[in-house]
Measured scan of single mutants.
Amino acid sequence: MQRVNMIMAESPGLITICLLGYLLSAECTVFLDHENANKILNRPKRYNSGKLEEFVQGNLERECMEEKCSFEEAREVFENTERTTEFWKQYVDGDQCESNPCLNGGSCKDDINSYECWCPFGFEGKNCELDVTCNIKNGRCEQFCKNSADNKVVCSCTEGYRLAENQKSCEPAVPFPCGRVSVSQTSKLTRAETVFPDVDYVNSTEAETILDNITQSTQSFNDFTRVVGGEDAKPGQFPWQVVLNGKVDAFCGGSIVNEKWIVTAAHCVETGVKITVVAGEHNIEETEHTEQKRNVIRIIPHHNYNAAINKYNHDIALLELDEPLVLNSYVTPICIADKEYTNIFLKFGSGYVSGWGRVFHKGRSALVLQYLRVPLVDRATCLRSTKFTIYNNMFCAGFHEGGRDSCQGDSGGPHVTEVEGTSFLTGIISWGEECAMKGKYGIYTKVSRYVNWIKEKTKLT
Rank of each mutant, 00 (worst) to 15 (best):
C170L: 02
I316R: 00
I136K: 08
Y371K: 13
D212P: 07
R140V: 04
I390G: 09
Y391C: 07
V447N: 00
R364I: 08
T215F: 08
P414S: 06
A149G: 06
C252I: 01
K234R: 11
N295P: 03
S448I: 01
V199P: 11
K45Y: 05
C396K: 01
V199S: 09
A37S: 15
F221S: 12
D338E: 08
N203K: 11
A250H: 12
V227G: 13
K39P: 15
K68Y: 07
F123L: 04
N48S: 14
S169D: 08
K168P: 02
K89Q: 13
G253R: 09
Y161R: 04
K137F: 08
K152H: 08
S184K: 10
G363D: 09
L383F: 14
I214T: 13
Y312V: 08
A366T: 13
C435I: 03
E193M: 14
G280D: 01
V228F: 09
V273N: 12
S184H: 11
G94C: 03
E434K: 14
V331C: 05
V263W: 02
C134F: 02
R449I: 05
N38C: 03
L60Q: 15
L346D: 02
A265R: 02
Y444E: 00
P375C: 04
T276Y: 05
G363V: 07
V368M: 12
P239C: 01
L321V: 06
G246F: 04
V273Q: 05
T215V: 11
R379H: 11
N304W: 08
E433L: 06
P177H: 01
E420W: 15
I275W: 06
E124W: 08
P235K: 10
F388E: 11
E10W: 14
W431Q: 13
A308C: 06
W88E: 15
W356S: 03
Q237W: 10
V326R: 09
F55Y: 09
F399I: 13
A366G: 10
P44C: 03
E270N: 12
A9M: 07
V368Q: 14
S329H: 07
C335E: 00
Y330D: 04
R75G: 15
I336L: 12
G230R: 10
K168D: 02
T386K: 08
N213C: 04
I7L: 10
E86Y: 11
E456Q: 14
F176A: 04
Y47Q: 14
Y115C: 02
L318A: 03
T287C: 08
V243M: 05
V181R: 12
R75D: 15
T417Q: 04
T426P: 00
T209K: 09
K446G: 08
K457W: 07
I390Y: 12
T461K: 09
E76I: 15
S169G: 08
G179Q: 01
G402R: 12
L103R: 08
G280C: 02
V377Q: 08
T342M: 03
D378E: 11
C155W: 00
A266L: 02
N151W: 09
D249Q: 13
S204G: 12
P235V: 07
G246K: 05
A380L: 10
E288A: 07
L24C: 09
T215K: 09
Q167H: 11
C145T: 02
N304R: 11
T342Y: 02
